[in-house]
């Protein structure tokens, strides 16, 4: 197996799509942060007031499935298109070995894209918003982020599991279709479906109205001016906000799926924890409320590992029986 992995890594490092994808992984967060910076600059705030960008570190993961779909389809499809896959099979390598070698290489590439994307976001967010007044006021001097780097990396580790799931799905599609163009189209369609269905499940299980209801209840309209408060009052105010936000979260969680019924409710309640996009949204929601990873993370990880294993078992079975040209 190491022979094929070694050979495939060489092929990867010679592959132009790989470098294009790496550059894109770097450029997208850069463009995002630059755009944000320019927005604040237009409002004459320079880089002095930014938001917290912890949320973006997870939400950016939604971009990678698209990138992975295109990269894996082109990388694997090229092997079929040029007939070079034959060179591996004709000399007696087992198909399972070839499949897992491709998986190892594609997974490494996908994780590299994710790492470069996170690096770019972290560097540019901090570079543009190093004097983040909002966070300074809270005496949390972490540039553009509320969470520390190890904590952010922990979120990325969870993101990596999702990225690996998408990689295995795209590999399954590419090997099954053995055609670059068809694989790109089908993989992209599947990614779009998974995201749009995820969005639909999320908004049905956690309707915005429930959240609004909770906010209206816990945050009745009242006027206050932070600048007129003493430091102690401000501290007290933020504490209260934090506690109420936690109550909002509890309220929303208690009412999940309450607007649904019957089979749809059962299906959606399963999907909300199993679909990668819904998992990202739930993690993001927690990050936004600064409550770390959700308690359901072990369940999410278990589901992700199961999907990863299922995609790969199907992929190996299809590839092992497939007639190649």
């Amino acid at each position: 197996m190491t022979n094929i992995i070694n050979a495939e890594f060489r092929r990867l490092f010679k592959n132009k799509f790989f470098y294009i994808a790496l550059v894109l992984s770097f450029l997208v967060p850069f463009a995002e942060m630059t755009e944000e910076y320019l927005y604040y600059k237009r409002q004459n705030r320079g880089g002095e007031l930014g938001m917290q960008y912890d949320y973006n570190s997870m939400m950016n993961l939604v971009i990678f499935p698209f990138l992975i779909a295109v990269f894996v389809s082109l990388f694997i499809g090229k092997d079929f298109h040029d007939g070079t896959i034959r060179n591996k099979i004709a000399v007696g390598n087992k198909r399972g070995v070839i499949y897992f070698s491709e998986l190892a290489v594609c997974s490494t590439a996908s994780v590299l894209f994710q790492a470069v994307g996170f690096f770019s976001l972290y560097v540019f967010a901090n570079a543009y918003f190093h004097d983040n007044i909002l966070l300074k006021e809270r005496e949390e001097l972490r540039g553009a982020f509320v969470y520390s780097l190890p904590e952010l990396l922990k979120f990325q580790l969870f993101g990596m599991i999702i990225i690996l799931g998408y990689t295995s799905l795209c590999l399954l599609v590419a090997v099954t279709l053995s055609s670059r163009t068809r694989a790109v189209i089908v993989s992209l369609v599947l990614v779009v479906i998974s995201i749009s269905f995820g969005e639909s499940v999320q908004s049905s299980v956690y309707p915005i109205e429930t959240e609004m209801e909770a906010y209206d209840y816990y945050f009745p309209e009242q006027e206050y001016n932070l600048y007129e408060m003493t430091e102690e009052e401000q501290e007290q105010h933020w504490k209260e906000v934090e506690e109420k936000e936690k109550l909002v979260q509890v309220y929303v969680e208690e009412h999940r799926g309450s607007t649904l019924s019957g089979v749809q409710k059962t299906i959606y309640l399963v999907c909300i924890d199993t679909l990668a996009y819904c998992q990202i949204l739930q993690v993001d929601y927690n990050i936004l409320f600064e409550s770390g990873l959700p308690s359901k993370i072990p369940t999410f990880v278990l589901y992700d590992i199961i999907s990863f294993a299922v995609f790969n078992v199907i992929g190996v079975l299809i590839f092992s029986k497939k007639d190649l040209k």
């Binding site: 092929r11 010679k14 592959n15 132009k16 040029d82 007939g83 070079t84 896959i85 034959r86 060179n87 004709a90 000399v91 007696g92 040209k325």
Partner: peptide, 16 residues
Amino acid sequence: RRRIGAVIETPSIYLD
């Protein structure tokens, strides 16, 4: 199979 070599239809080569 390790003892055989094959060129099937078009040569299987890495063009780049």
